[in-house]
Design a binder for these strands. Structure first.
Lengths: 348, 348
DNA sequence: ATCGCTTATGTAATCCTTTACATCGACATT
DNA sequence: AATGTCGATGTAAAGGATTACATAAGCGAT
């Protein structure tokens, strides 16, 4: 009844050739004669043969699959990057495994499992926190796996990576606010231990000082990139005295949470406070008001990371270790919409 | 130099036991004696052994992986469901493969590849369009694969599924608008061939008629669930004479695109038109104005689908075919926020 | 001491492909 | 005619874990 799936032997028998010929026809059609090819294709049709991926993987010592470690799948920011990765990878014949790293503690047994390379041929890491995991460095086989870090990655760490210039982006956001005449500029940032947070804060700080302004501690709000963090910041902002007339947020989600909450409390943006976001999520252009923000080419980041991983995987271990880790820094744009305007009173 | 990874044989040698004992220790520790167990664990440590997944899969005729077919990965709606799936599945020791089906034409070779079960042990399909693919039904092995359909699924089709009651949801949205006093209610719907579109339209139509109102064709706007569709609908709405005073949108994205565009053109929501969304994306509660919408328990849908698939996979083919396809319909809520209000003039 | 039963372990077959190596014709060159 | 070359095919050996079956050891009962 439940008869076993047809194997390459069955195909060979039907076609009247050897299993080697079948295998060759299927993976290197140009190696066999026209006649054999026809015979085999025919037999494949007849038997309904489907290759057994596990057997091939075992023999080839490769899996044709890569894994993506995502800090938070529910976050729309990552979804889009994943989409870019999936596009390139499936085009190249690879499957994409996803792993949400939020629920995994850093020393979770699954992380090394992914790294051990017999589950996947390579890895794209979107979670900057994972680097600190000793596991990435300890076991030799693990650290040798082809790996590309994307997004949450400090540009000066030594690993293949695809990032944007976070400092520069923050600087541009601030300059825009300064050029509008803002003197008191606040920053709503990510979690302190996040690599992006530091880079963006430095950039913002630099630009503020360059302009002869100050960034006192009380104008720097800690957040975590989420809508909720924006909501909390709104309450803080409202309660503060001598408030900033503009706030640079390290993510669109926080910017929207901030604006949304202010609106509920009757404070208008940009009339009473200008807001700059970061990411340029799709919704940003349609928000009320449309968000001035830093555009990140998310799909391109995903595609680039995938391509870089593909390149790395095509190298031998030695070659990989000899070559310096490639680093790609993609350009970002400031897109000016309606959430920023000159401050209400020109003087603080 | 590049020495081959330690295999179970190496562990066995170091531990001074047979490969069988090693295998048993690793997968059924209770089958071996205390002493052997210690010996083996030790040897595993020493050798740095990692199981070879391909070999195990080949032997066990299973992959410990499932695939999720997503219509559009970039869509935040699906990202959250995926997150629920990943959570349950990785808890149960399964890997999750994702495949974005938008780029695949329906007869793409990859679809049957996923179905052929030797790449994955099961399938969760979030793309309602795929059912029409003859491939799902033609080949016996394919149609026998454990499969669960979620979200985009018509409740009365015969397949294991996790859905919400779309008709009821739409009905509730409409009743809410009616209860506010609206007489002219429009609908911004999904693509015509989408299963959700039909169910929601029927529900909306039903509720409108029940209330003694009409739904003329010109008040039904075709969309595709995207922000852009909302933008387009706004233009249409503005251009129409005798406009609806309220619009029920089949997705939050469309609702937000609609509101965003109206705002740019100086039309206030809900003052001039009330808007109900569908999905309750995170951002909905923080939009300006906060969106009245149908709450879908997205993470729960994902978890439920994963659990159902797990259950189905634990059954034999015969059992699966004997049992009726399980169907889970999760409850939805209407959450009333600020994008709906009584119409400006009480009479049409 | 023998038998029977249980528990722990080892041996070796098995899962299905890929591919190194061997073989075989056919054809060209000398 | 003998030799060499080349392309196409077949044979059989991996690849690494699981597990059916065989064996051995331990123990209680007779």
């Amino acid at each position: 009844m439940t008869t076993r799936a047809p194997s390459i032997r069955d195909v060979a028998k039907v076609a009247g050739v050897s299993t080697a010929s079948v295998s060759r026809t299927l993976s290197n059609p140009e190696m066999v004669s026209e006649a054999t090819r026809a015979l085999v294709f025919n037999a494949v049709q007849q038997t309904g043969y489907r290759i057994n991926v596990s057997a091939r993987n075992l023999r080839k010592q490769a899996t044709s699959a890569i894994a993506v470690l995502v800090p938070n799948l529910a976050n729309p920011f990552f979804a889009r990057i994943l989409s870019g990765i999936a596009e390139v990878m499936s085009g190249a014949g690879f499957s994409v495994l996803i792993a949400d790293t939020t629920p995994m503690s850093l020393d979770d047994h699954r992380v090394p499992a992914f790294l051990s390379l017999n589950q996947t041929d390579g890895l794209i890491v979107l979670d900057g926190l994972l680097e600190r995991d000793a596991l990435l460095n300890r076991g030799t086989p693990a650290s040798r796996a082809p790996m590309v870090f994307a997004c949450e990655w400090n540009e000066n760490l030594v690993r293949p990576s695809v990032t944007i210039d976070n400092q520069d982006a923050a600087r541009r956001a601030i300059r825009h606010l300064v050029s509008l005449g803002h003197k008191r500029i606040g920053v709503l940032n990510g979690p302190r231990d996040n690599v992006l947070t530091q880079a963006r804060l430095e950039g913002a700080q630099g630009a503020i000082h360059e302009s002869g302004l100050e960034l006192p501690k009380r104008w720097v709000f800690d957040g975590d990139f989420t809508l909720q963090a924006g909501v909390r910041a709104a309450a803080l902002w409202l309660g503060a005295q001598n408030r900033p007339t503009a706030v640079f947020c390290a993510s669109d989600e926080m910017a929207m949470g901030f604006i949304g909450e202010l609106n509920q409390r009757g404070v208008r943006v940009p009339d009473e406070v200008s807001v700059v976001g970061f990411d340029d999520l799709e919704i940003a252009a349609h928000f009320v008001p449309p968000l001035t923000t830093i555009h990140q080419p998310r799909e391109a980041i995903g595609r680039a990371a995938a391509q870089m991983l593909l390149d790395r995987m095509s190298l031998s271990v030695q070659e990989r270790e000899r070559q310096p880790a490639p680093k790609l820094v993609l350009p970002v744009d400031l897109v000016i919409r309606k959430s920023t305007s000159p401050p209400r009173q020109s003087a603080g």
